[in-house]
Amino acid sequence: MEIKGKVFVFGNDVNTDEIIPARYLYTHNPQELAKYCMEDARPGFGKRDDIKGGIIVAGENFGCGSSREHAPISIKAAGISCVIAKSFARIFLRNCINIGLPIVEVKDTAIFKEGDIISIDFNKGIIINENTGKRLEFGSYPDFMKEIISHGGWINYAKNLIKGEKE
């Protein structure tokens, strides 16, 4: 899989209250949640046209705080194609794996600037900054997570498993 898109840079410890504030949690409709994606980190972000296909780049501990799956759902529904961070909070990470929002953990995010166009090759584990030509390698997911991803998410994995048990 390859993804190419524009970079939007955020800081450290971006929490799920900032990604999707609780005042919008009266709904679980993805399209509605998308409008308020990253609202308290960058007001109006979710309503911008230029974020479609974009890539969020953040620092340490992205997605900390509440377990609300509304956070990765809003990012995915807003059209963001991938989140790159130095590290992800645990529940946010499993939510992304479960719902199929691509994420990449890298040691250094300094080579990415706001507005850069970058491409990510998931098979080779390489990110290329198209503006500067700089390259960055990243490790692959653990096998168990790869398995979930290859099923297209946790629900499909679970369905397959019970189907297998019945047969």
């Binding site: 377990s67 799956e69 529940i91 499993r94 479960n98 946790w154 994995y157 679970a158």
Partner: peptide, 15 residues
Amino acid sequence: GVGSTDIAGVYIMGK
């Protein structure tokens, strides 16, 4: 703590 999809997984297969 987990996400809602994890909980749906328990509804489906108990795990």
